[in-house]
Design a binder for these strands. Sequence first.
RNA 1: GCCGGGGUGGCGGAAUGGCAGACGCGCUGGACUCAAAAUCCAGUGUCCGCAAGGAUAUGUGGGUUCGACUCCCACCCCCGGCACCA
Length: 948
Amino acid sequence: MKTEETTPYSPHTIEKKWQQRWNKEEVYKTDSSLSANNTKYVLDMFPYPSGAGLHVGHPLGYIATDIYSRYLRMNGYSVLHPMGWDAFGLPAENYAIQTGVHPSKSTQKNIETFKRQINMLGLSYDWNREINTSEPDYYRWTQWLFLQLYKQGLVYKQKAPVNWCDSCQTVLANEQVKDGKCERCKHQIVQKNLDQWFFKITVYADQLLGDIDSLDWPESIKLMQRNWIGRSEGARVKFKVQSSKLKVDDKVDEIEVFTTRPDTLFGATYLVLAPDHKIIHDLKSQISNLKDVEEYIKMAKNKTDLQRTDLSKEKTGVELKGVTAINPVNNKEIPIWVADYVLSSYGTGAIMAVPAHDERDWEFARKYNLPIIEVIMPVEGESHKDEESRDTITAIVQRKEDNKYLIVKWKEFGWIAPPIGGIDNGEIPEETAVREVLEETGYKVKPIRKLGGKIEMHFYAENKNVWRKRFDQPVLCELISDKQDVVSNEEKSRHDILWLSQKELFEKVTHHYNLIGYERFIKNNYSYAGHGTLINSNEFDGMSSDEARSLITKKVNGKLTIQYKLRDWLISRQRYWGAPIPIIYCDACGIVPVPEEQLPVELPTDVDFNPTGESPLVYSKAFHNVICPQCQSPARRESDTMDTFVDSSWYFVRYIDPKNAHEIASKELMKKWMPVDMYVGGAEHAVMHLLYARFITKAIRDIGYLEFSEPFTSLRNQGLILAEDGRKMSKSLGNVVNPDDVVKQFGADTFRLYEMFMGPFKDAKPWSTRSMVGLYRFLEKVWKIGNSGLKQGYNDELQKKISGLSKKVSSDIESFDFNTAIAACMSCVNTIIDVGVGKQQWQEFLVILSPFAPHICEELWSISGKTESITFEKWPHCVVKTSSTDTIRIDVQINNKSRGYVTIKRSAETQDNITKLIRDDSKLASYINDTYKVIKYISGEKIIIMVQ
RNA sequence: GCCGGGGUGGCGGAAUGGCAGACGCGCUGGACUCAAAAUCCAGUGUCCGCAAGGAUAUGUGGGUUCGACUCCCACCCCCGGCACCA
C-alpha cells in the first residue's frame, strides 16, 4: 500500500470526541418502554470504590460485558447494562478512623474517580441507573428486605459462638474466615459468644443445592457451592448413657449422634463428644475425672482454628470416666470420650466412632488403645452366577534391606501379583501364607499379623475358565532368610520372582489381585471407609451396606436424616459504615421491628469512629434513643449494622427500577428484565456473594415479588491479571499498573484490545506493557486503511474472509473467547493490506471490530460517509456461501505423515481421480514414486492415506 | 489428603482426532536514513544440511487409531478451592 499523507492516528482526540457525543446523545440509555422485547440484562459485579482507584483487573470484566452488550445491541436486542457502587464497607471506616474524613465524603470522592476511569474506557453503561448502596434511597430497601425476611421468620437473634476479629473489632461470617484468619486483615480470629442476628439461609439449603444443576455457570463454581452446602445423608441414633451414680431425676440419659454410616453401627466402639458439647456440663456430677476433663476442655477452647485443624498433629482427647454409653444395636457398653476432632457445630456435636471404617476414628483408637471391630468387608468386582467360592490368603512379604516386596509373575497369563493361595482344611491364614510362599518361591517367612479384615473378590480365572469368588485375608510376613529353597520344576516353569518397590507395586500389580488390601497396607491405614458386605453384625451379616443402613437405623429407632454443612448467615456487624438493622428494643414490648413507613433508618453523623467492640452507633444519642413504635415509651435502637453482603445480595433488582420510591422495583419491569442473562466477575465470589444472592432471590420470590428462582442465568469468571513479574499486583510490591497511565500512553481502544487479547478470559495472565504496542500498531493499520481513499471495488477473496470473520467473531464473543476474535480481526486486516478493500466491505469490517474498539470504529465509520452512530448498526451475518459445496478438500497423508491436500469436485470424487490429482500436484508428487497406491480413502472424513 | 483447572517456541498464547505453533510480542537480516526512531520486506521450535530436503518435537511412560496437543490408563509438576463436616 502506498504511504499517503494521512492524519496520524490520535486516539485521545477521537476518544474524547466520541465519549462526549455518546454521552450527550444518551446513546446507551436503556430502552425501558414496556413494549421493548428481546431484552438482555448484562451485568458486572459492582465494585467497592476503594481509595486506590480502578485497578487494571477491574476493566477486564467491564470490557468483556461491554463487548458483549454492544454485540447484542447490534443483533437487535434491547440491553440493560448498568453500573453502581458497593459503597458500604470497612476500608472507608478505617480511613475515617485514621483521617477523620467521614466515610460518605471519602466514598463519594472515590466514586468520582472510579466513574471517570470507567468512562475514559468508553464503556457503554446506562448511568441513569447508577446505584450506591450507602445512600438512604438504596439502603432503605436493604432494611425493607430485612423486615420482609423478619416477617417470614427468616431472621432470628441468638447468642452464638461467633468469629471475632480483634483488629476489625467486629464479627465475621463463616465465609469470611480463611485459615482461621480474618479474610480482610489477616488477623487471628477468636471465638466469642455474642448476641447476633442471623438469616436462615439453611432453610433454603435443599433448593440452593438442587437448582445449581440448571445454571449456566462455570462447573468449578457450581462445585464449590455444592461443597459449601455440603449435603450428607445419614442417620441420627441415640445411645443410652449409663452411670454408677445416675439418679432417677437426672435429665441426661442419652446422647444423640449423627452418622453417615448407620450400616457400621456394630463397629461403633466408643462415642466422642465435641469439647463444648452441652451434655458434658450436664453430666458433671457423674464424671469421676472431672478435673482432667475440664482441663482438656479449657485447652481445646484456647486452640485457634488453625491449630485445631492442623492435620499433621495427633488427635487428642480425654475419656469421661464414670459414665458409659450403650450401643443400641447390641447393648454393648462403650466408653465416652471428649475430643476436639469432633465439631460442635456439625450434626449433633457427638459421633459414634467406628475405627475400623473411619480414618480419624482409626487414628484416635490406635493412639488410645480403643477396640477396633471390622464390620464391613470390602468387595472387589461384581458377583456372577455359578461362582466358585474359596478362602484364600495374600502373602505380603517385605524385604527389610531395601523395603521391596515379593511378587510373582505368572508366565502364562502375564499376571503380576503377590503370592496367593487357598486355605486348606484346618489351616489358619498365617499357616497358609507361610506354606504358599515356600511352595511358590522357595523363601522361608514367618507371619507377623493379618492386615485388616477379609476382602471379598469376584473375578474371572482365565487359567481355569471359571468365575470365582474369593474371601481373601492379607497376611503380613517377614523374610527369615535370603536363601531360597529349591522350588519344584513345575513351579519354576510357571512363574518368575520379582522384588518390587512400593511405587512399582501400584504400577505393575495386575487387576483383580487385592489392590484394596495393598493400598490399605502401604498407606499404613487399615480403616476401610468404603461400602461392602456386612460382617460381625449378627442378623445383618452378608447384607450390603446399602441394604443395611435403613434396616439397622430402624432397628435402633434412629432417624434417617439429611445434614448440611451450610450454616445460617450471621449478618450483624459492630461497625458504623453499613445499613442499620431496623430493629428497636423496648423494655415493655421486647424486640420491635421498625415500621416500614419509618424507613430508612438513617445513619447519624454525630459518631466517633474509633472502634470499641461495640458499634459506634451506640454512642450516637440521636440515633440510639428512640420511641417504641408500639407503646410509645422510651426505647433504644439496634446499633449493629448489616454485613455489606446483604447490600450486594439484591442490588441487581434495584437496577431495574432504581428511582422507585414505593417499591423495591416495579413488578412489571422486573418481569421484563429479570433475571440477569449474563453476569461477569471474579471467581473469588464463588461462595459468598453468589450464594447469598441466590438465597435472597428465593426468599423474595417466596414473599411474592419475583417469579423466578435464580438471579443469574449465565455466569462467567474473569481471570486475575498478574504483574509483569508474574506475582499478584499489590501496592506493597510496587508492581501495580494504573489504567490511567496506560490510557494516557496508548488510548482506550488499545487498552481494551490489549486486555482482551492477553489470553483466555478466565485464565490468570501476566501484564506486559511491551506487548501492548502490537495492539496499537494494529489500530494504526486500521486507521491508515480507513483514511486512504477506499475503492468501490469488491474482492472475492476478502469477502470470504469477512464472512468468515463475522461468523468467527460472533461465536467467539458468545463463548467469551475474545483473544481469538481479535486475532481473526488482525488477520483480516493483514489480508486487506495485501489485497485492498471496497467501501462496503470496509464498513462491514468496522462493524465487527466496533464492540472491541468503539472509538476508532465510530470515527472511521463517519469518515467512510456514515452519519448515524455505529452503535445500532446491524451485525453482518455471514451468508454462508454455498457455491463451494460442490468442491471438497481432501487432506493427504503419505506414510502416516500429513503432506498437503487436494481439492476436487464432489461429483468427481473417485479414487482414480484423486490419485491423478496427487500425481499432478508438484508438492505432493515429490513425496511419491511410480509405484505408489492409495491404500485407504475415507470420503466422509476427507482423508487419504497412501503407501509407496 | 480430597475436589477442580492446567503443563505447547525466548514470551502471551492458537489448533470439530487430520499440514502443531494461528495472532501478537521479542529476536535476526535487509530496505529507507548522515544516523537513530518509526515504517516496510524477509526469516524465526530444535538438530543435520550450501540447498532441496530430512530427522525430531505439545510434562513423563504406556494404550486406542490409518492418524493423537486433542481420546483412555498410570505417573510427575504448577495453579486454584476445600480441609478432622463423622
